Simulated scan of single mutants.
Amino acid sequence: MRWDNLKIEAAEGARLPGYRDPATVRTFDAPEALQTRFYEIHAKSALNRVPESSRMPFRWTINPYRGCSHACVYCFARPTHKYLDFDAGRDFEREIVVKVNVPEVLRAELKRPSWKGEHIAMGTNTDPYQWVEGRYRLMPGIWEALRDFRNPCSVLTKSPLLLRDLPLLKEIAAVTDIGASLSIPMIDERAWRASEPHTPNPRARLEAVAELNRNGIPTGILVAPLMPGINDDPEQVEEIVQAAIDAGATSIGGIGLHLRGEVRGVFVEWLRSYRPDLVDRYEELYARGAYLPTPERDRIARLLVDAGAPAARPFRRDPADERPFDRAFRRQMGPRARSAPAARHRPDPPSAIQEALF
Results as ranks from 00 to 15, higher is better:
Ile217Asn: 03
Pro218Asp: 02
Pro218Thr: 01
Thr219Lys: 01
Val223Gln: 13
Val223Arg: 10
Pro225Cys: 04
Leu226Gln: 14
Leu226Phe: 07
Met227Thr: 04
Gly229Thr: 07
Ile230Tyr: 03
Asn231Ile: 07
Asn231Ala: 10
Asp232Glu: 03
Asp232Ile: 00
Pro234Val: 06
Gln236Tyr: 04
Gln236Asn: 08
Val237Trp: 00
Glu238Trp: 04
Glu239Asp: 06
Ala243Gln: 09
Ala243Gly: 12
Ala244Phe: 06
Ala244Arg: 01
Ala244Leu: 05
Ile245Val: 14
Asp246Phe: 01
Gly248Val: 15
Ile252Pro: 03
Gly254Leu: 08
Leu257Ile: 04
Leu257Val: 02
His258Tyr: 09
His258Met: 11
Arg260Gly: 12
Gly261Pro: 02
Gly261Tyr: 10
Glu262Pro: 02
Arg264Ile: 11
Val266Gln: 06
Phe267Gln: 06
Phe267Asn: 04
Phe267Ser: 07
Val268His: 15
Val268Phe: 15
Trp270Asn: 09
Leu271His: 05
Leu271Phe: 04
Ser273Arg: 15
Ser273Phe: 13
Ser273Ala: 15
Tyr274Thr: 14
Pro276Ala: 12
Asp277Ser: 08
Arg281Gln: 01
Tyr282His: 09
Glu283Asp: 09
Glu283Val: 00
Glu283Ala: 01
Ala287Val: 09
Ala287Ile: 08
Ala287Phe: 02
Ala287Lys: 10
Ala287Glu: 15
Arg288Gly: 07
Gly289Thr: 03
Leu292Val: 00
Pro293Ile: 01
Thr294Gly: 05
Pro295Asp: 02
Pro295Thr: 00
Pro295Lys: 05
Asp298Phe: 15
Asp298Asn: 14
Arg302Pro: 03
Leu303Glu: 11
Leu303Phe: 06
Val305Tyr: 01
Val305Cys: 04
Ala307Pro: 00
Gly308Met: 04
Ala309Trp: 02
Ala309Arg: 00
Pro310Ile: 05
Pro310Leu: 02
Ala312Leu: 12
Arg313Asn: 13
Arg313Glu: 10
Pro314Lys: 11
Pro314Asn: 07
Pro314Trp: 03
Phe315Ala: 14
Phe315Ile: 05
Arg316Glu: 09
Arg317Gln: 12
Arg317Trp: 07
Arg317Met: 12
Arg317Tyr: 08
Asp318Lys: 11
Asp318Gln: 07
Pro319Asp: 11
Asp321Ala: 14
Asp321Thr: 11
Asp321Leu: 10
Glu322Trp: 00
Glu322His: 04
Arg323Thr: 10
Pro324Gly: 15
Phe325Pro: 01
Phe325Trp: 13
Asp326His: 05
Arg331Ala: 14
Gln332Trp: 12
Met333Val: 09
Gly334Ile: 08
Pro335Tyr: 11
Ala337Glu: 12
Ser339Trp: 13
Ala340Leu: 08
